[in-house]
Simulated scan of single mutants.
Amino acid sequence: MAEYRQAHIPQRISFALLTIFASLTGCAKDQSLAPPVNSEQVIVRLKVPSELKAETMKVMYRSTLCTFTDHSAYGGPYQRDGYQHMDIEPAQQGRSDVYEAKLSKDGGGACQWRLSNVTFGVSYREPGRFGENVRFGAGGGVVVIFDDNASPRGGANIKVDGDLAIKESYYPWVDEGFIGGHKKDVSLLGEGYDYYRMYQALDARLVSFEPVLHSRFMVYSIGPKEKKKGNFVTFKYPDGSIEEVRRAKPDFRRLEAIRLAAEKK
């Protein structure tokens, strides 16, 4: 298991550092991050609605010098880039709704670490307001990759040149399930099947994310109480319409149409 230890980086940010596996080659090297004072920065900026909160950022650095031995599905050994994970709390800018973190492109140190990817996003500040024992489910996440490697959540399906500006609509989705025990959670429903938007931005120096929360247009789903052929999830949309389908998530385009029609009235 990897162990956490503290590292201090000249960015006005303190963060927890996850050391890489003990099987790294060249283990006599100091594997800590040491970004140069003049290291190029990537600014990650979030504009957070009042009902939401900024999640802890998960940052990964990679090294082609400090590698480690992994094994293929057939048991064959091969060398992989070393990596380090860290958590960074984005800082609120004054009393505004803007939160920001600065990431050094050059991680420095004997391993010559380089920024590889960052995972960040938003979640509900108080999910309990949707009912007793309601927890936050998923959604509102973003992954940005700064090199040609996949992130811990996979590769990017959107590639951009230069800086990256993301503005996405989200709807509150309250889901109640019974099979395997009663549970109720609230998620941020965005466009697409995945809960994380995946980007590759090799040259970005500014990544901005503005989630637009349409709080008045809530969708509910209620799962079946037993596994039985023909038992489907029931979706209740904000216009009063009901849909019983095999689909695992509400219809985002249907929600968009309901909202746009209501806003025209």
Score class of each variant (00 low, 15 high):
Lys236Pro: 00
Arg216Leu: 06
Glu176Asp: 03
Val44Gly: 08
Lys47Arg: 09
Ala262Glu: 11
Phe217Thr: 05
Arg197Val: 00
Tyr61Lys: 01
Ala22Gln: 15
Leu103Ala: 06
Asp185Gln: 11
Val186Asp: 10
Glu263Trp: 01
Gly162Lys: 05
Asp161Met: 12
Arg246Asp: 10
Asp87Phe: 15
Phe21Lys: 15
Glu243Phe: 03
Pro238Asp: 04
Gln92Glu: 06
Ile166Phe: 02
Tyr4Asn: 12
Glu55Leu: 14
Thr56Phe: 08
Glu132Asn: 11
Thr56Gly: 09
Gly76Pro: 00
Gly230Thr: 04
Pro36Thr: 06
Gln112Asn: 14
Lys184His: 06
Ser50Gly: 05
Asn117Asp: 15
Val186Arg: 09
His182Asn: 10
His71Phe: 15
Val212Tyr: 01
Ile179Thr: 11
Val134Tyr: 01
Lys102Trp: 01
Phe21Pro: 12
Phe15His: 05
Ile179Trp: 07
Asn157Lys: 08
Ser32Trp: 06
Glu256Lys: 15
Gly162Tyr: 05
Ser208Cys: 07
Val122Lys: 02
Leu33Cys: 10
Ile13Lys: 07
Gln200Phe: 00
Arg254Val: 02
Pro10Tyr: 03
Cys27His: 14
Val48Trp: 02
Gly75Phe: 03
Thr64Leu: 00
Ser151Cys: 06
Pro250Trp: 03
Ser104Ala: 15
Arg125Ile: 07
Leu189Pro: 10
Gly192Asp: 10
Gly94Ser: 08
Tyr74Thr: 15
Gly139Lys: 00
Arg125Phe: 10
Lys264Glu: 14
Arg125Leu: 15
Gly108Ala: 06
Gly82Gln: 02
Phe235Cys: 03
His8Asn: 12
Gly94Glu: 09
Cys66Tyr: 01
Phe209Lys: 02
Ser63Arg: 02
Pro35Thr: 08
Tyr171Pro: 07
Glu89Arg: 14
Ile258Gly: 07
Cys27Arg: 15
Met218Leu: 12
Pro10Met: 04
Gln31Ile: 13
Ser32Gln: 13
Gln6Ser: 15
Phe235Glu: 02
Ser39Asn: 02
Ala165Ile: 08
Leu260Tyr: 03
Leu115Cys: 11
Gly140His: 00
Asp87Glu: 14
Arg62Cys: 05
Gly180Tyr: 08
Asn133Arg: 13
Lys47Cys: 00
Gly75Glu: 05
Gly94Arg: 08
Thr19Cys: 10
Gly154Ile: 02
Leu189Met: 10
Thr234Ile: 09
Glu89Met: 12
Ala248Arg: 14
Asp30Gln: 07
Gly223Ser: 13
Pro238Phe: 01
Val207His: 04
Pro90Cys: 07
Ser187Met: 06
Gly141Tyr: 03
Val44Asn: 07
Lys249Cys: 01
Phe21His: 14
Val219Gly: 05
Gly139Glu: 00
Arg129Val: 10
Asn231Cys: 03
Gln92His: 04
Gly76Asn: 13
Ala257Ser: 13
Asp175Tyr: 06
Ile13Thr: 11
Lys167Trp: 01
Arg205Pro: 02
Thr69Pro: 12
Lys229Asp: 11
Val143Cys: 09
Gly107Val: 06
Ser96Cys: 12
